[in-house]
Design a protein around this nucleic acid. Structure first.
Lengths: 388, 388
DNA sequence: TTTGATTGTTAGTAGAGTTTACTAACTTGC
DNA sequence: GCAAGTTAGTAAACTCTACTAACAATCAAA
């Protein structure tokens, strides 16, 4: 009789997950990240200690830790040798030995660099590919091959690949424009993922660099890092997050006009661009001219001092508007250290009203050579472990 | 026998919640906010429609909605009159009639303003207190009395109080400095909460204004609003969130030096501050001088055009570094509209390299009179409902 | 040796969201 | 007017997460 009853159709909802609705499992993922973060930054500790720091119960922490043990994200290190009453604690730590990351720096002059890094950002191994005149897809292929080679050098489980590249990179890891390589809409992230099978993250090189400094350097949650090389780029951390910008072009300050008194003609067609004062080629040209003058040392000093002033003129409104705590310069130390850095600091203070006792701090990035490699690695750590 | 067994000490953990560990209930709170947000911005809809937009099941949405019905945050509006097969939908909507908010604007010249607003930011009632020469605690008392009066004017359940005040306000709602009122570390939020018993939020007036424009105006997630009044202040939205700054002083651009060619002496002691060009008093002074010249109209035009240029010179590095999509000016329309706004737009484009097809949009804020009141209300909606 | 402190685990419970299965109520086509 | 199909909303049972309660293991100090 009722054999003919309708077949119940299962609601096939929740197919796309467009919205940002939170499931209990999302909370779980967040808490797992918190455990990893705590261990990563504070070092090995017991489950009970984690429980106290996180505000979760020992039971929950035990469960989270056993989950992470299974995934290989953390390891047990044996009993703590602390002397105190009670059952001795078993230390757990992020699996520093068993996990590695690939970092890539495509922004160096005529060389593509890659490295294997551990979770603390130490470089364990390096590989390179020198470029001559290649552009377009030739460079892309070199990058893919270099990535494969780097992956082969890893001696532990790889969490993923991070890349710092010149040009503008959107949130999907597509390099929309990179004039140096004549790239246009290159889906670098997907290409690398396809090639290596590893989770991959691609960002602009200055953005990668600011990640590195934010993690391993000063660590202010409101800072800018200016990367001075062939061009001038920057990466900003605002409220602890990287500023991406409306068109993924945040940090592109090389062609902002500086000052109100003209300046040199730039290859972009305007005059007075920051790059005409601050890029390494511009500085070297000006220094060469200074060396040929009657008072070479004084002239060189003026060149560097003026460049620093110009940078500060451009940065002052940014630092003021965002109330940044740190301005970090990254580039050739022999150019930036001394008169240039001092001029930046001095001019910045002159142009900002700083009644408060904590003015902006201006300094050079440590380890400018490898800052992009390390920043690229940090991006992977954040993405895969929620760590940094 | 075993009567002497140890008294089990309950783990008294999770007392402080210092960390940011996520509980399932936090996820629930988030999903409740999502429902409110969706209804607030998209208008009344059925539970089933909510389910589809949010990606949660109908069952869960039903549960969330019944929760919100109990709290009075949403109401049922009866059957939808859409004509299509199936059971007719019961529309639910944010309780637009039954919930109200107090907004306060302390940044006007010699008057404190407050208003009762509905959830859509409409002003339902106003109250004011005029100031003569009061400073310090006298002003605080006026503010507290004004708040009480405004609360009395409400005709529905009040969600809370939002305040836009001149000066620098930290994350705890303490006004650390407000020179106009000679305030120093005034805990305005706590004072208002004590007086009225309502949840209260305090921000700088320009920050409140940018919230208003972000919600009711263009709505770009990367924008700056410059508020021109007695002084010049600004509020920034970066990546959809308000930039607070390292010392809660983000947006304070009035005393950034503009340009490299000197300028007028500012009361702060430096020369060439943005305020010397752009504040209403400075503009009015310059316009009065222009009116006395031989060609008053042309001179006035030059004054306004120059002011716009100066603002753009200061903003260009900010817009470039943050890749902002919108620059919004708020202030006296008769001063800002026309030559000044055009000069800002033109100068900004000249000083930025914009190869991409979506340059920055420059415009005036709608309804500059009430923008702080409405922004203050938005802050409450965000905080109490997760809406806006 | 006893007492107390501390760590980590097991057992059971409450909350959040899901799947499954149902009722209610409407339109369409004959 | 009636069956068929469609959509909205709900009830029950299950899963997952984190919690409380209770306990075993282990060590220091009295």
């Amino acid at each position: 009789m009722e054999a003919l009853r309708d077949r119940q159709r299962t609601d096939r909802q929740r197919t796309d997950r467009t919205g940002a609705a939170t499931l209990p499992s999302d909370g779980r993922a967040h808490n797992l990240s918190l455990v990893r973060q705590t261990l990563h930054s504070a070092g090995a500790m017991s489950r009970a200690e984690l429980s106290r720091t996180l505000g979760l119960t020992r039971v929950t922490v035990s469960d989270l830790v056993s989950d992470l043990l299974e995934r290989g994200h953390v390891v047990e290190l044996g009993q703590s040798d602390e002397v105190r009453p009670g059952k001795p604690a078993i230390l757990v730590d992020i699996n520093r030995q068993g996990l590695q990351v690939i970092g890539m720096d495509l922004a160096e002059n005529s060389v593509l660099r890659a490295a294997v890094l551990d979770l603390d950002g130490n470089i364990l191994d390096r590989v390179e590919r020198s470029l001559s005149e290649e552009t377009g897809l030739d460079v892309v292929n070199q990058v893919l091959e270099l990535a494969s080679e780097a992956v082969g050098r890893a001696t532990a489980t790889l969490l993923g690949i991070g890349v710092g590249t010149p040009g503008i990179v959107n949130a999907d890891g597509v390099v929309t424009t990179a004039p140096n390589f004549e790239w246009k809409d290159i889906p670098l992230r997907d290409l690398l993922q396809e090639r290596t099978g590893l989770p991959t993250l691609v960002s602009n090189d200055a953005d990668a660099a600011v990640h590195a400094d934010h993690t391993f350097g000063g660590g202010s949650d409101d800072m800018v890092l200016v990367k001075i090389g062939r061009g001038v780029g920057s990466g900003l951390i605002v409220g602890g997050r990287r500023a991406r910008g409306a068109h993924s072009a945040a940090g592109e300050i090389g062609h902002v006009t500086v000052g109100t008194d003209g300046g040199t003609m730039c290859k972009c067609g305007k005059t007075g661009c920051l790059e005409t004062w601050m890029s390494v080629p511009s500085l070297e040209l000006a220094l060469a001219e200074a060396a040929a003058s009657s008072e070479p040392e004084a002239a060189a000093d003026v060149v560097l001092r003026e460049a620093g002033e110009r940078l500060a003129i451009a940065l002052a409104p940014v630092v003021g508007a965002l109330d940044l705590a740190e301005v970090v310069l990254s580039g050739p130390r022999e150019l930036l250290e001394g008169p240039l850095l001092n001029a930046v600091q001095q001019t910045l203070l002159e142009r900002l009203l700083h009644q408060d006792p904590s003015p902006v701090s201006v300094r050079l990035a440590a380890d400018a050579q490898d800052i992009v490699l390390r920043g690229a690695a940090v991006m992977v750590l954040w993405n895969q472990l929620g760590v940094a």
